[in-house]
Every structure is written in structure tokens, then in C-alpha cells.
Simulated assay, not measured.
Amino acid sequence: MMPNAEIDLEAEYNNRARVPDHGVHIAAWYRDAAAYRGSARCELDLAYGPGERHRVDFFHPDDEAGGPVVLVIHGGYWQALDKSSASHLARGANMRGLTVAVPSYDLAPSASLAEIVGCIERASDFIAERTQRPLVAAGHSAGGHLAACLMARPGGSRRPIRVGMPISGLFDLAPLVSTSVNAALGLRPEEAHRLSPLHLTPPQDGRLVAVVGGAESSEYFRQSREVVERWSAAGVDARVHIVRGAHHFDVMVGLADPSDPLVDILVSLAADA
């Protein structure tokens, strides 16, 4: 189902305008991420490809049991931010015994969205091959889109990912074509369709928990509902999880807290990976 033609798509997808103090939240991400890198058991800036941004950080629990690795993919509408904004999101899973990998990836406009998807697929293959463990795909906003793409593997990733938790993800890219988000992406309608997880084939016997903030726009709710409906019809165990009262810039902060429901979901997904 496409959004209602009367909806102001620019307002629906312009998250920075919807949350005027977004800068405060982003500054806190970088502060908390740097603090966690300073205290965590981590391996930083491992190269998974030849590019300057083809780097991944690993965060290890104190008691590493060798289970699945959680892949946390940062957001930024495929055109901003990097892994150093998301390190602290590994804390909750680490404290529950899970290893976490946080990659950077190429950004628009220097890279097309298809190239960005291919980039994150190379990162996931590197992580899986290095650890020889299954992966749980998680990510925020654009990272949620990329996490779902990894599960559907439109670029032919060599190591399938069956379980994932996209947070405030984008699964139907068609509405973005007419918004300012597309200025850097340059998406054409056919490419938006081809790279939308809503229209891709999900993994057989997979699990998906689409997380969305209770204070997010109606379009973000629609996106999460529709991917759950479409993938459920294809046989995926899929559901929506709402973080009550959360907006686009604080919906994922619970990942830093080992007792948060988002971390409970990751642990549950890891058990099925």
C-alpha cells in the first residue's frame, strides 16, 4: 500500500525537522560511543575492503561463549554518520554475552544506494568469515534498511542472515524519491523499487522484529507494518515492536542497557540465528 497522496512526505521523512533538538541527541551518541570504546574489549578499524570507510569495529563480551554476532548498522539516510556514532549500542548485547560488530560504509552522493548495499554485504561477509558464526542483522533508520537488505540479499551475499531487528527502518523507498532525502541519493523510481526490502524475497524460516518509536511519523509506522505483513505472508516470523514515547533519535538508545526490551529481542533472535 502506497502512502496517501495527501500526506506531506517531506514532513513525514524529515526527521531532523520533526525533532528540533536532534543535534543534542547526535552529540550524545558520539560522546557515549567514545566512552564505550575507551572501556570495552574491542578491536577497532579492521579493514573489510579497500575503501577509507571499509572498516569495522568488534566489541566483545567479558565471557565470550562463541555464539552469533550482532551486526549493528548506523543510520544517517545513507549520506551521514559513521561507526563511531554507534559503539555504545554494543554495550547491552555485550553484557548479555554477545559479540557485536559495527561497520562504517560508503555514503551518498559518492556512492549509489546499490553500491552502499553491496558495501554492507561485503562487511557482513567479512564478519561472518572472520568469526565463523551466524549473524543477527540490526540497524537504525538507513541501517534498518540495510539490515533488511542483508536478510533478503539482493546483491547475493555469500552468507545468508535469517534473523534481524531493523529499528525505524525504511523498507519502501518509493516515497523518498520526491523528498529532499533523494537529493544526495539520486534514486529513480525503478531503482527505489528494486532496493526496497518490501519487494525483495525474505529468508525462508526467518525472524524479523521491526522496531519503531511511538512518537515517529505515520510513514515510519506504515513502513514497519507493511514489511511485517509482506514478509509474514512469505513465511517469516515477523512482528512490530513499538518503543513507547520514543522519537527517531532516541528509539535505539535501549541497546546500551542490558535490561532493555530491545536487548531481550536481540538475545532471542540470536538463539534462532
Rank of each mutant, 00 (worst) to 15 (best):
A233H: 10
E219R: 06
P197T: 01
H25K: 14
H241Q: 12
R239D: 13
R194W: 08
S168D: 09
V19P: 10
V228K: 07
A147F: 09
A11E: 13
A108V: 11
A80S: 14
T179L: 05
L185T: 05
K83G: 06
D272V: 09
L173K: 03
V267G: 01
S217T: 12
A215T: 02
I242P: 08
E64T: 08
V69S: 01
A192C: 11
E43W: 11
E121P: 09
A123R: 00
F59S: 07
A184V: 11
D63Y: 04
A234H: 10
R158L: 12
V253Y: 12
E129P: 11
G67M: 04
R159I: 14
L9D: 04
S259V: 13
E64K: 07
L146C: 10
V228G: 07
E219M: 12
G206Y: 08
P50M: 03
P61G: 00
R91F: 01
S196L: 03
A271Q: 10
A34Q: 12
F59Q: 06
A246R: 06
D32Q: 14
I265M: 02
F221C: 06
A233S: 14
Q132M: 13
S112V: 04
V19A: 01
A86I: 08
G213R: 01
R53F: 10
G169F: 08
D260C: 06
H241M: 11
G38T: 06
S141T: 12
E64L: 08
V56D: 06
L71I: 07
Y30I: 15
D125V: 13
L185Q: 04
H248Y: 04
V136D: 01
F126N: 07
R225N: 15
H145C: 10
G186T: 02
S141C: 13
G169Y: 00
S104Q: 10
G139D: 02
S259G: 13
G76V: 03
H88Y: 15
A215D: 13
N14K: 09
W78V: 04
L89Y: 05
A148S: 11
T201N: 11
R133I: 05
L208T: 07
Y105Q: 10
S180W: 12
F59E: 00
D62Y: 02
R91D: 03
S110E: 15
H199D: 14
C42G: 06
A210L: 04
P61D: 00
I161H: 01
L135R: 07
S180K: 15
R37V: 04
H74A: 02
R91V: 07
G97R: 05
A65T: 05
R91M: 10
D250V: 11
S87Q: 04
P202C: 09
V228L: 03
A65L: 03
G213F: 00
P154M: 02
A128T: 08
G67N: 00
G76Q: 03
L71N: 00
L107C: 03
V263K: 00
P68Q: 07
L187E: 00
A5T: 14
G118M: 09
A256N: 06
V209I: 12
H248C: 07
S39A: 15
A123Q: 07
V253D: 15
M95S: 11
P20Y: 01
L81H: 12
A192Q: 02
G213E: 05
L173S: 07
T179N: 03
L9E: 01
A256R: 14
D21C: 06
S217N: 00
A273T: 01
V24Q: 14
R153G: 07
L266D: 04
L176H: 06
